[in-house]
Amino acid sequence: MAGEGKPAAELTLRGLRVFVALEEAGSVIGAASRIGGSPSGVSQHITALEAAVGARLFDRKTKPVTLTPAGQVLRKHAHRLLAALSEAQADLAEISLASLPQLNLAIIDDLDASLTPVLVSALQARMSRCFVHAFSGRSDQVIARLLAREADIGVSALLPPDTSGFRVLPILQEPFVLVAGKGAITGDCRTALERLPYVQYSESLPIGQRISRLLARVRLHPERRFALEATRSVLAMVVQTHGWTITTPLNLMDAERVLPRLEVLPLPFAGDVRRVNLISRMEELGRLPDALAQDCRMLVRSHLVPRFDNIAPALAGAIQVISES
């Protein structure tokens, strides 16, 4: 009968999200990575979307893929619709927050003493009836708690294996730095590192694994005599052996007692940068993660940056606050 048969294709929110992901990533594989799906799923959504609007939306012959005139029209409306939906979800989440009985934080131990009091105070000011529980540990432990839903908000130098279900709000980035016993490094720096005792972080820790990869990349192979887990122990051993280690500014500030007997220097080779983010689950907690991320940035800018600049004037500006783009 006329008018019956296969139903007409329709615009869907999922289809619009895939459209925006492909537009921003420039490739089907990149879009699939952004949304946590498969390349074939992206292609199917785009095909259905093109059937719904009756026109091709992307020129797939170009690399990266580019929008057709119809795609450019849809782009404007898709961004507007998704922004409106996100705002509506945030408003609804704010209503739920008012009666939230408990909120669980998980914070990287490098920042525990400085960030935890600020975040807890900010939460209490916004939600006076909410009980706040704060866990402090390694970045991998913070991520594990987020994945197990034992934490609602995490501050970590690692990311979840699949970020598609999470909001990642950047806080800061910091370089890895060289720390040595005062006066230990003379002459050529790299030659001195080959000669002096090396105090390493345990490779059971994310930071230990990352530093080991860095040393392998630059083909520096110091003798490995011991491995320690706590930064305070690592730096105390550097003082004791008149040796050296690699760490980050945040870790360094956790052991101020031994700093007068140490030198903080830039790495004598191409280094690495560590980024710390505030992470929450997608479409939960409304605008709260954004507000807390801003609180964190303000604290880093006003307290941690000048504190490290005073410790290592030659590396002033090494800790950089990152605003969400």
Rank of each mutant, 00 (worst) to 15 (best):
K6A: 15
A8H: 11
E10L: 14
L13D: 11
R14Y: 12
G15L: 11
L16Q: 09
L16N: 04
R17W: 02
V20A: 08
A21H: 05
V28K: 09
V28D: 02
I29H: 15
G36C: 10
S38N: 10
E50Q: 15
A51P: 00
V53K: 10
V65M: 15
A70E: 14
G71T: 07
V73Y: 04
L74P: 05
A78I: 07
R80F: 07
E87G: 04
E87M: 10
A88W: 10
S96T: 14
P101I: 09
Q102T: 13
A106M: 07
D109Q: 11
P117S: 07
V118R: 14
M127K: 06
V132K: 02
V132F: 05
F135Q: 08
R138K: 13
S139K: 00
V155C: 09
V168K: 10
P170F: 07
I171M: 11
F176D: 06
A180Y: 02
E203Q: 15
I207M: 07
G208W: 01
G208D: 05
L215I: 05
R217A: 15
L220H: 12
R224K: 12
A230I: 04
V238W: 03
H242F: 04
H242T: 08
T245D: 04
T247G: 08
E256D: 06
E256I: 10
E256V: 11
V258S: 11
P260V: 02
L262V: 02
A270C: 06
V273G: 00
V273F: 06
E284L: 14
G286A: 13
P289E: 06
A291K: 09
M298K: 12
L304F: 02
F308S: 01
D309P: 01
A318F: 01
Q320M: 08
Q320I: 05
S323M: 02
S325Y: 01
